[in-house]
Structure formats: C-alpha cells, structure tokens
Amino acid sequence: MPSSQTAAVDEHIARQEARLAGSSSHWIRWDRGLAWSFLPSSPLGTAAVLFAADRLLRLPSAELLSELGRITGQIPGRDHKRWEKTWRVFQDDASPEVRAHITQAVPALFPSPRRRVLPVNVWTRHRVIPSLLPVHLDQHHSFGPEEIPQELPEPWVRVFHNGPDLTTTAVARRFRRTLAIQLVQAASGMDAQQAADYLGVPPGTDLLDGERTQTDEQVATDGTAELREGLTRLAEHLASQPHHHRIDYRLRRQHLATWHLSNDAFEELHRLLVAATNGLRLPTPPARLHDALSAIIWRRVTGSEYCLAPCFRPPFSPTSRRADATTVEIRLARRIEQAPPRSPYRTILPALEQHAHGLITSCEQAISHRP
C-alpha cells in the first residue's frame, strides 16, 4: 500500500491490538470491530487496505499463488478468535477462483468440504461423466479459465476428436460438460468441483456422486491415453488462438446473470411470428415461447446450456421448477434454432441474432470500462 497511507492502517491495528488484549472471551462478538473482516474506521486506512487487496487480486495466477504463500505463512489456525469470522466470510462469499487460490496457499486451514447433493433433476439427470474427471492435463497452457464456456462449441469438440462429424446426443452433452471442467482445471489448477463452480454449474451439484453407467465405463476403459491426447490437442488449439478472437465467457455470464428478455422485446418478436403465420394462432403459449426465446439469446451470448439460463431460476421462475433437456421450453428452443426454411420460427432467427449481438456489445463495453 502507499507509504502515505500506512500510518492510518498501523493506527487501526494498534487500536485493535489494545482492545484485543482486554478481551477475555474465547471468541469476538461480531459488532466489536476486532476481527480482521472489519476495515479501518478512517477513510484513509480503508482506502489503503482496499488498494492492497486490489493489487493482490490483479496478479497473474502464478504470482498470486506465490505471494499468498509468502504472506499467509504466519496465519493462525481456524480456531483463533480474531480470524474465525474471516474464514467464514471467505468460505461463504469469496469467488470460486479466489477460494481455489487461498486453499492451495494454506491447505491446512481447509479440510475437505462435505459433499453436497441436489435433487437429480435440478440441473439434468446425467450431469457429467465422473469416470473421465481424473483424466486431466498439467497446468501449462496460456489460455485463461474465463475463456471456457459452460458448454463447449461443436468445433471445439471436433478438434478434440480430430475431425469427425458429431451428433449432439445426451452423452455428447455430458461429454462437453466434462471437457469444459477439465479445460478450466488445465488453465487454473482448480479441482473438478471448483472448476464446475467457476463455470456456473448450479451450486450444490456434486459432480463426483453421479451414477456411472455402462457407457461411462466403456469410455474410460483403456482410453486414458486417447483422452489425454484429445484434451491436449484441444488445449493447444485454444492456446494458439489470437487474443482478439478470445472471449471472456465468465464476464458475460456475470454481466447477464439476471438477464431476461423484456416484455416489450418479446412482444415485438411475437408480432413477427404472428405475421409469419398469416394471423393464425401459434401452437405455443406465449409464456413458454417467452422463456424459450430468452434461453436462446442468453445461450448464444454466454456459450452455455439452455437449462442454466436465468429465465428458469428465481426471480423469474419458482425455486422448485424443473429445467433439463426434457423441459418443454428447452425442447421448443432447440426446435426454433433448428427450424427448417419454411417454418415461421425461421423468420425470427435474424431478430434473435440481433438481440444477441446487442448483448455482446454491452458485455464488451463492460469489459472495456473495468478499472
């Protein structure tokens, strides 16, 4: 931190130490201001702490890990009363990548978390292919984890398979998810669950507790070398892309985390569809069509799966709502995007692309204005 501001921080620490010495209780009440989670009371001291934190978080991954290892070497255990709240705040509120860096720097402070399981249909019944997760790369590729979308595009999967045409089946979708997790691991050093959290997979989804089908075992049997070769080929392909062609998918997901097609925009698209049917009533209820169009646009911008779109989650949808490959709105979204030339749905595809382009421009502006 700037030397002109250190005096304010030193004063804050000295005041805390004096109050701490007079505290006889084993733990600190949240409102006493003694835990490290409290910032200095003076604006200058607060600015100094935030400046130091910002500089630390801007370091490249390798430097950040090295610096964290250096400055956390003397941190007391989890039961230290002054640090206890700090660790709770960290575990509840820190981003997945920061959690991954801290737990690597001071692993003794973080025992393995309890396994978390969601109802089987919260995301989709077959989430990933657990038997493939142990097959991963060393961390030596120059692309960033933010450049990996939730669902790998078909051209990327073709690179992995070295060229053959592919059909998007349920198993292929699970395979894409698994590859996305492994690419994030290759770029960041996170474990599988941390990589899934980073990608925005629904919180609580336990990747390693999925049922292993015969298909999983067949894929994994004697295929480790082939899988590693394909994953290496794909990672090298991504690393070779020019920087101006790379996309920050994570920022797009964050920027559009609560995005939903507005009522006015939907009404305009609905009028286009009605006109294309010569005034005949559409077979799809407007509410379902609204969600399907929202999911299509969001997916095109963020490189994600339909079923993870915000329109299927609160506040736009009830907590208990099921969203997976069999959901009516998701089947409708696929039907719209694959509409044949004479389908009325075909007439709105350019308008959907226009909406997606506008959101992409908004995301790029958000990136350019980041401090």
Rank of each mutant, 00 (worst) to 15 (best):
R177A: 04
A356K: 07
H126P: 15
Q182L: 13
F51D: 11
Q182R: 04
P43R: 00
A47T: 15
P341A: 03
R116I: 12
G358T: 10
A21R: 06
R29I: 10
P285W: 03
L251R: 06
L166K: 02
L234C: 06
W259Y: 12
H80E: 09
R313M: 01
R115E: 13
R114F: 15
H357N: 10
I336G: 05
D209I: 14
Q5G: 06
W87L: 02
Y249G: 03
G144K: 12
S41A: 07
Q16R: 14
A220V: 00
R58D: 07
Q241H: 05
P119F: 13
P107V: 09
S362P: 03
R158M: 08
S112T: 14
P310R: 00
D31L: 01
D138F: 10
E353F: 09
P350R: 02
A7T: 02
L308D: 03
S112I: 12
I367T: 03
A235H: 00
F160V: 04
R322P: 00
D79M: 07
E17Q: 14
V301L: 13
A323F: 01
S4I: 12
A239N: 02
H141C: 10
S23T: 10
R78T: 02
P43Y: 02
I71P: 11
Q338H: 07
F312V: 05
L352E: 01
P119E: 10
R370S: 11
R176K: 08
E67K: 12
P130L: 08
H136Y: 11
R346P: 07
A35I: 04
R246H: 04
H12S: 09
Q218H: 14
E84H: 09
D209L: 12
H126E: 10
S95W: 09
E146A: 11
F175G: 08
L280I: 11
E11N: 04
T215G: 15
L272D: 07
L50W: 07
V135D: 15
G200T: 06
Q193W: 01
A108M: 12
T232H: 05
G22Y: 01
H255W: 15
A108D: 06
L59S: 00
I360C: 13
S112A: 13
A339R: 05
E84C: 04
T347S: 15
L256K: 04
L269A: 10
A108C: 06
T232P: 02
T221Q: 14
V184Q: 03
E11Q: 06
R177C: 06
